[in-house]
Every structure is written in C-alpha cells, then in structure tokens.
Computed example of a mutant assay.
Amino acid sequence: MVGFFNLKSGSLAEQRKTGEAIMRLSRSVFDDSPGSEWLAFSEDPRKWLHKAGYRYDGPGAGKSGQIPASVTLVPVYDTPNIMHVRIPWKGLLDTPPAVQDEPTYGGDPANRFPVLLARYFMRHCR
C-alpha cells in the first residue's frame, strides 16, 4: 500500500516557498540546463519533492518523510491543449481518507496562488 504526500509545514511562509518551487518547476519543464528546477526534479524527483516542502507518510518513509525508492513517481505535464485526468487507485475507495476543511490562505493576495499550488500539487497523490 502506498502512503500519502503532505506538506511538511502548516506555515503560510513555508507553503508559499513550496508553491514558488512548483512555479519554477512548471516554467522550466524540459529545460536541462544547469541550475534549472526541471533538471533537479528530473534527476531525483523524490529528493526534489522533499526539498520543496513535502513529506511522505507511508510504508518505508525516511525519518523526516523522505520518499522511499519503492515508490514510483510518474510526472505528467499539462499543455494548453492537454489536461491529464488522474484516476484514483481503487484501494483508496475502500477506506477513503478523512476530508478536512481547507485552512485560510492568508490575507496577502501575493501569498494565495503559491500557497494554493503547494496545497494542491500533491493533494491527490497517495
């Protein structure tokens, strides 16, 4: 059974940093130049996700939520004309996780979008 990905921090400032990392990744998809976010992600997506602010809560997780090699990550990329639809694993339907109300995104409009990205980027990933 695969676990779930969660944000490491409840802090808006930390979630904003995670959202900004996602924005850098999105802007650099397929850019293999040194220092690009895409290069770091494609070389080791487990390390990138953990460094960006996610922890893995599941079998084989490292002490601070590192993603084990036994978890296969499959990145997908939306384009202006392609949107990927994720079909949930059937086992998730047997015992659905509890759904909680979403906490505030903070008062500063500049925080809202990066925090939204941080909270939803890995939301449906077990």
Results as ranks from 00 to 15, higher is better:
Val2Tyr: 12
Val2Thr: 14
Gly3Met: 07
Phe4Gly: 08
Phe5Asn: 07
Asn6Lys: 14
Leu7Val: 01
Ser9Val: 07
Leu12His: 02
Leu12Trp: 03
Ala13Met: 07
Ala13Thr: 00
Gln15Pro: 00
Thr18Leu: 04
Glu20Gln: 14
Glu20Cys: 00
Arg24Ala: 12
Ser26Ile: 12
Ser26Gly: 13
Arg27Asp: 11
Val29Arg: 11
Pro34Ala: 00
Gly35Phe: 03
Ser36His: 10
Trp38Asp: 07
Leu39Ile: 07
Glu43Phe: 00
Asp44Ser: 09
Pro45Glu: 08
Trp48Val: 00
Leu49Val: 02
Leu49Gln: 05
Tyr54Gln: 05
Arg55Cys: 00
Asp57Val: 09
Gly58Arg: 08
Pro59Ile: 08
Gly60Lys: 02
Ala61Ser: 13
Ala61Arg: 10
Gly62Pro: 03
Pro68Glu: 03
Ala69Cys: 00
Ala69Phe: 01
Ser70Lys: 13
Ser70Ala: 15
Thr72Phe: 14
Tyr77Ser: 14
Tyr77Trp: 15
Asp78Thr: 10
Thr79Cys: 05
Pro80Asn: 09
Ile82Ala: 07
Met83Trp: 05
Val85Phe: 09
Val85Ala: 09
Pro88Arg: 11
Trp89Gly: 11
Lys90Leu: 04
Gly91Trp: 13
Leu93Lys: 13
Asp94Val: 13
Thr95Asn: 14
Pro97Val: 03
Pro97Cys: 06
Val99Leu: 11
Gln100Gly: 04
Gln100Pro: 06
Pro103Gly: 01
Thr104Tyr: 02
Tyr105Asp: 04
Gly106Tyr: 02
Gly107Cys: 04
Asp108Trp: 08
Asn111Met: 05
Asn111Leu: 12
Asn111Thr: 11
Pro114Lys: 08
Pro114His: 01
Leu116Ser: 10
Leu116Thr: 06
Leu117Cys: 12
Leu117Gly: 09
Arg119Cys: 08
Arg123Leu: 15
His124Cys: 12
Arg126Ala: 15
Arg126Lys: 14
